[in-house]
Design a protein around this nucleic acid. Structure first.
Length: 254
DNA sequence: TATAATGTTTGAAC
DNA sequence: AGTTCAAACATTAT
């Protein structure tokens, strides 16, 4: 379920509960459920792939990881990690990571890093990629960052997941074995920009239930442009499955 | 039925 | 001490 755009849709689906009082909090997450009861759920926010349920003085951070799901005003058979019940309705989260954090969301998260945020800043992402954050935590100046790893770096592209990664690289005609340092400046800027542009397309398509049919390379058997057989390989330090066209995507290595 | 998949954290090993 | 890596977690569609 979980790349940034899907989480934005999630927050919209439970958005009507914002401002409402939690009557009951339950589930098998190891947090103090009682703390939320009889408190007003002040706001429902997201940052990248995280859903943030804001209360006075603390917030609950939910990450769906790979298999997380949720239901609004209906239930799955399995036990929920977290279920909040209100006077009118409820929502439940299953198989996800749930943490309760003291403090304020706005102080803890940098909105300019969130690919779906109106405050997203491509310029800042570019700076990070050129600076130590983008260098995969390596202190070596010679360290080269693979573009797949860069796009999946949540400090830089919060919300980008494996689907968005694959599609952006295909759209930009960048071979997944390229490096950030090898990309011409123009190409790098285009890739950064498209990470946000495509994420918003993803959002619209997902909402209209037509996301899959718009996948150009992700899980595709052949390249839609030149029709040769699409390649699949586990690339980068992240070793995530990468679909690409050896013919249409240009390899830039520094 | 076995496999792989929209992900991250942890802690051991180097 | 910094980095890398495998393991753990857990569900469901193909």
């Amino acid at each position: 379920m979980p790349e940034g755009p899907s989480i934005v849709i999630l927050t919209e689906e439970i958005g009507s509960f914002a401002g409402k009082k939690v009557l009951k909090a339950e589930g098998n997450a190891k947090i103090d459920m009682h703390r939320m009861e009889n408190m007003k759920l002040l706001a429902i926010k997201s940052w990248g792939k995280q859903t943030l349920l804001c209360f006075k003085g603390f917030y609950v951070r939910i990450h769906l990881l790979m298999f997380g799901t949720y239901r609004v005003n209906e239930r799955k058979e399995t036990a929920p990690r977290l279920r909040l019940t209100f006077a009118r309705g409820e929502f439940s989260f299953y198989t996800c990571s749930v943490k309760m954090v003291d403090g304020d969301v706005e102080k803890d998260y940098d909105r300019t890093a969130d690919i779906m945020s109106a405050k997203w800043s491509g310029a800042k992402a570019e700076k990070k990629l050129k600076g130590p954050t983008g260098q995969t935590k390596s202190t070596k100046k010679t360290a080269k960052t693979n573009v797949c790893d860069a796009l999946l770096n949540q400090d830089v592209f919060s919300g980008v997941g494996n689907i968005i990664k694959n599609e952006v690289l295909f759209r930009m005609k960048i071979h997944p074995e390229s490096t950030i340092q090898g990309l011409p400046a123009k190409k790098l800027k285009a890739m950064i920009k498209d990470a946000a542009v495509y994420s918003h397309r993803f959002y619209a398509w997902k909402k209209a239930f037509v996301l899959k049919k718009h996948w150009q390379i992700y899980k595709q058997k052949e390249c839609p442009r030149c029709h040769i057989k699409a390649k699949v390989k586990y690339i980068g330090k992240t070793k995530r499955r990468t679909h690409y066209c050896d013919n249409c995507q240009v390899k830039y290595v520094g």
